[in-house]
């Protein structure tokens, strides 16, 4: 008999304690960040969308090899005058439909001090069609003055 009432007491106590917890949180400030109005700054190592710097790229193909999903493709620039490959890209393409945002390409990139392919802090990006996901950087049509690159040491692997 005593046990019966004891159980009732314990059960009601536990239930009321639960209500006290939710009741307490009712008056605590919310932690919601109201996204389009308020934005958090991404941390330093944030892996946002990839950006590519076509000027510094040496077309070394390391990022192409590093990519786990083979979403990067590039074509080295061949000087029409000499028919020689020089350490510049003709075009560079990333298929963001496949990109894993894993940073392996950035880590493989040998250019210094700033990697020519790297993650930015930008994360607001949307595409409507699959074809838009292929982002292509093309070499500027202006001719390259120097035949032999001086500033880059690495050749295509």
């Amino acid at each position: 008999m005593i046990n019966y009432f004891k159980t009732i007491y314990q059960v009601s106590k536990a239930l009321l304690q639960g209500m006290a917890v939710t009741g307490r949180w009712l008056f605590q400030p919310a932690i919601t960040v109201q996204y389009p109005d308020e934005k958090l700054t991404p941390p330093e190592r944030f892996r946002g969308t990839l950006v590519f710097d076509k000027e510094t790229c040496t077309a070394c193909n390391l990022c192409v090899k590093a990519c786990p999903t083979a979403c990067i493709s590039l074509e080295p620039y061949v000087d029409p005058a000499t028919q020689k490959r020089i350490a510049k890209v003709n075009w560079y393409q990333i298929d963001f439909g496949k990109c894993n945002y894993c940073r392996l390409c950035e880590e493989a990139c040998p250019t210094k001090p700033i990697k020519s392919v790297r993650h930015s802090h930008d994360y607001e990006w949307s595409m409507k069609e699959r074809s838009e996901m292929f982002v292509k950087w093309k070499r500027d049509p202006s001719p390259v003055i120097a035949d032999t690159p001086k500033d880059t040491g690495t050749k295509a692997a």
Binding site: G23, W25, L26, F27, Q28, A30, I31, T32, Q34
Partner: peptide, 13 residues
């Protein structure tokens, strides 16, 4: 609103 604030949210805003 009540459920949201109990769960540290804001609910419809």
């Amino acid at each position: 609103k009540v459920s949201a604030h109990m769960q540290s949210r804001l609910g419809p805003m």
